[in-house]
Computed example of a mutant assay.
Amino acid sequence: MNIYQKLIEVRKAVPYLKKGNKGEQYNYTSSSQVVAALREKMDELCLLLVPRIIDKNVRTETVEFKDKNGNVNKKTTTFFTELTMEFKWINAENPEETMVVPFYAQGVDKAGEKGVGKALTYAEKYFLLKQFNIPTDKDDPDAFQQKVEETKPPKPITTEQLEEFGKLVERFSEIRNVKTEQVYKALGVTTEPEKIPEGLAYNLIEQLKHWINKATNKTA
């Protein structure tokens, strides 16, 4: 596989991540949770991800807190770190094959020395989430998968189902001496069976078998 095919396989491996950590106001997905979910597949496919800081910018903001007399009794300095980065994907089985993705990161710290670390953690998590289009809804994985399935268009009737359905309709119309259109109407479906969804086709086939069996027994 080339590097693009490998990245697609990684994306297939993680269709969803639950927000497993709880903050003061909201649930969130941690960086370690994201990396842990992807690393095994990356190792399996021999993919390396190399981060690189291209440029940095650190801004500070000092806020003064005053007492009721207007005297400053406390100062807090916030360090805001911005990083211009790039992430390079390397196919370890063919190291000359790479893909470079520009990225931006930021981190806020009150002490100052952790600003870069926070920005790098931020970058790692959000780069991987966005690179592989990983949803992180608050719902549990099963509920999320159900929502995904509900948005998909229904699968059309299979060739085998279509053939069996047609034979059963003809058989029942002969037994009851009615037109096939009347059988379709009794089933509550269109006269174009190729448009029937796969799941519904299964139920209709079973219904026709039941009707034929019942009609045949009465005739006998």
Rank of each mutant, 00 (worst) to 15 (best):
F172H: 09
S173D: 04
S173Q: 04
S173C: 09
E174L: 13
E174R: 11
E174H: 12
I175S: 13
I175A: 13
I175N: 11
N177M: 15
N177W: 15
N177Q: 15
N177D: 14
V178E: 14
V178H: 14
K179S: 13
K179T: 11
T180P: 01
T180E: 06
E181M: 06
Q182C: 08
Q182E: 10
V183P: 04
V183H: 05
Y184N: 00
Y184F: 10
K185V: 04
K185C: 04
K185I: 04
A186V: 11
A186Q: 14
A186K: 13
L187I: 02
L187A: 03
L187C: 03
G188L: 08
G188E: 05
V189K: 02
V189D: 00
V189T: 02
V189C: 04
T190N: 06
T191W: 01
E192V: 05
E192G: 01
E192Y: 07
E192C: 03
E192M: 07
P193R: 01
P193G: 01
P193I: 01
E194P: 01
E194D: 03
E194I: 05
K195Y: 10
K195P: 05
K195F: 10
I196K: 02
I196E: 01
I196G: 02
I196T: 06
E198F: 14
E198T: 10
E198M: 12
E198I: 09
G199H: 13
G199I: 12
L200K: 13
L200G: 10
A201I: 03
A201W: 04
A201K: 02
A201Q: 02
A201N: 02
Y202R: 09
Y202D: 07
N203T: 11
N203S: 12
N203G: 08
N203V: 08
L204A: 01
I205K: 00
I205N: 00
E206Y: 02
E206A: 06
E206Q: 08
E206F: 06
Q207C: 05
Q207A: 10
Q207S: 12
Q207K: 09
Q207D: 07
L208D: 00
L208T: 00
K209E: 02
K209V: 01
K209M: 03
H210P: 02
H210Q: 11
H210N: 09
W211P: 03
W211Y: 14
W211V: 03
W211G: 03
I212V: 12
I212H: 07
I212S: 09
I212L: 11
